[in-house]
Design a protein around this nucleic acid. Structure first.
Lengths: 191, 191
DNA sequence: TGTCATTTGTCAGACGCTGACATTAGCCTC
DNA sequence: GAGGCTAATGTCAGCGTCTGACAAATGACA
């Protein structure tokens, strides 16, 4: 995994073949495909970890917190503590470089957005559970998550476009944008 | 294109090979790839048309309309008049079946979401232009579009999950969800 | 009719990915 | 330590997407 991410970030995703990755760690191509379902999967290994952290953080928030507040805390928590699970696999700086690469590689961006959509579905179900709502009849859980997700995406995109690639900056940009729309979203929730 | 969509909707996207599509219209596989950059492209030909319509509709809205109002009119307009450009290429019913297939095929969904993100970027720039804002310093154009896009996605998803596959139903679901969050979003805009 | 540009076909090959089968490695038991 | 079991790995063949290079065909026009 570390070898793959290093190759990806050094020479680009498309220009890195599975054979190269496999050769770098002296295994056959077939073995690579036994551990990763496809080439994309290895590219999202650290994202996967961060997302799990995010979801777990949401589930750990106190039950009396409003949905948006809980989401906000969870995402800032997950991105602040990027190190936790990821550091053991790859250097955090590699994780960040990979995030940039994902945002700037069309095929990876597509997969990233789909993964995000799946995560949002799980988030919406968790919000519904917290609030005791039926997700099939009440649109609010999905709506609040969808809009929240939109804000996160905008923040991430701005970060990628910018120069400063520290984790802290990403956190700050995210917090700023959430503050911007938070009140309106919270209001709409109570309607 | 029509042959491709018919094959896709009949036997699934993955289970349809490019050779099959090419054979169906008696051309070589190489010729197919000269007209479509890849297999996905042909699957999104009608979506492309609908999106262009949507964007054009937004550009045609009166300048004094609030951003969200303009977006709302544009999307309902584009989805109501699906026939316009599409009917000349494929039957509208095929377009709708294809939309369902996209939402339910992971690889296509991924591309769909990326295309949507690209469209949203253009929408945000148009909103910024209308309002005389600088998109690089004012986050509001991107935020309002991102949240608007989230609502559209939720509506589309619910439609796909449901049984009624008429265009009208999709329009109604979309309108309903927009009404739900519209006021709050409008309020946040003026803040 | 000959010339030229555009379109199409053919061929070979890279790359991602999979199934089938052989080989090896590690480990437990006797 | 020999035998045998299981899990991991390698090898091989093949499908499908996609690309570059070159040849053949097509059509328009002088």
């Amino acid at each position: 995994m570390r070898s793959a991410l290093e190759l990806f970030t050094r020479q680009g995703y498309e220009r890195t073949t599975v054979d190269e990755i496999a050769d770098a760690v002296d295994v056959s191509q077939r073995t690579f495909f036994r551990y990763f379902g496809n080439k994309e999967e290895v590219a999202f290994a650290t994202q996967e970890s961060a997302e799990r952290h995010f979801f777990a953080a949401l589930c750990g928030r106190p039950a009396d917190e409003a949905p948006l507040t809980a989401l906000r805390h969870a995402v800032l928590d997950a991105w602040g503590a990027t190190g936790d699970a990821i550091e053991q696999m790859v250097p955090p700086e590699l994780h960040m470089r990979m995030y940039r690469l994902i945002e700037s590689t069309p095929s990876l961006l597509a997969v990233h957005l789909r993964r995000t959509a799946e995560l949002e579905e799980r988030l919406a179900r968790e919000i519904a559970r917290r609030e005791g709502l039926d997700i099939d009849t009440d649109p609010r859980p999905r709506l609040v998550v969808a809009m929240f997700g939109g804000v996160i995406r905008v923040a991430g995109k701005l970060w990628v476009e910018g120069q400063d690639d520290s984790t802290v900056t990403l956190r700050d940009i995210t917090a700023f944008h959430l503050d911007y729309v938070g009140p309106a979203l919270a209001e709409q929730w109570d309607k």
